[in-house]
Amino acid sequence: MVVVDVQELLLPLVWRGEELADRIAALARAARRAGAPVVALRQVGPPGTDFDPASPGTRLSPRLCLEPTDVVIDKTATDAFYRTDLAAVLAERRVDTLVLTGVATDYCVDATARSALSHGLDVVLVSDGHAPAADGDPRAGLTAEQVVDRHNRLLAGAVHPGGTLGLRPAADVVFTRRG
């Protein structure tokens, strides 16, 4: 399971942030029970910015109830694979399918889903497990709910040579352990 950027700074800014974090925490508990790894990504940036790694806002939300066995990876780009060890961490754990959740639908979740596919991984995008900004995309005239729906449809229909992407609501996600 991969959790994208559910950070103290971002959670209050996204659509139904606390509800989203609680849903992701429940999925993470289910993943751990099944022996599946939980990887939490954290967006960081240069010192003195909102994403300064030392800033309290960059901390992952305590609502996630992360465990010491969970892996936390800092990233500096929307694509969580870009200049991180995410691919190596997943390969080391023999992960071939990501259950993907997090923030923000139209930025880091989208970029990470596409990159995972290009890395040859299958992706289960939790259809109710990601969120955009609370106001959606006002420039495009889309509410937050419309942004989620649009990206669910776009990503599920994307063609990638590596993996496949399927949508599943959180209530229908089942984790299995390989081997």
Rank of each mutant, 00 (worst) to 15 (best):
T101L: 13
V72L: 05
I73V: 13
R93L: 15
R94P: 02
T69Y: 04
R83G: 02
R93C: 14
T97D: 01
Y82H: 13
V95E: 11
T76Q: 09
D85C: 07
L100E: 03
V71Q: 01
G102D: 04
T76Y: 03
D79W: 04
R83L: 11
L90R: 12
L98H: 05
V99R: 01
L100M: 14
K75D: 06
T105N: 07
T97H: 00
T105K: 02
T97L: 05
I73S: 02
R94S: 14
E92R: 14
V95A: 10
T76W: 06
T101W: 11
V71C: 04
F81G: 07
T78E: 10
V95C: 10
A87I: 09
A88N: 12
I73L: 14
F81S: 11
V71I: 14
T84Q: 07
A87K: 10
L90H: 09
T101G: 13
T101E: 13
L90V: 08
D79A: 04
D74V: 01
A77D: 06
K75W: 03
T97C: 02
I73G: 00
V89L: 08
V71N: 00
L90N: 10
K75A: 11
V99N: 03
T101H: 10
A88R: 13
I73R: 05
R83W: 05
A88E: 15
A88Y: 12
A87Y: 09
D96R: 15
L100Y: 03
T97K: 00
T84N: 08
I73Y: 04
T101D: 13
V95G: 11
L90C: 13
A77T: 00
V71E: 04
V103T: 00
D85E: 14
D96P: 04
V103I: 15
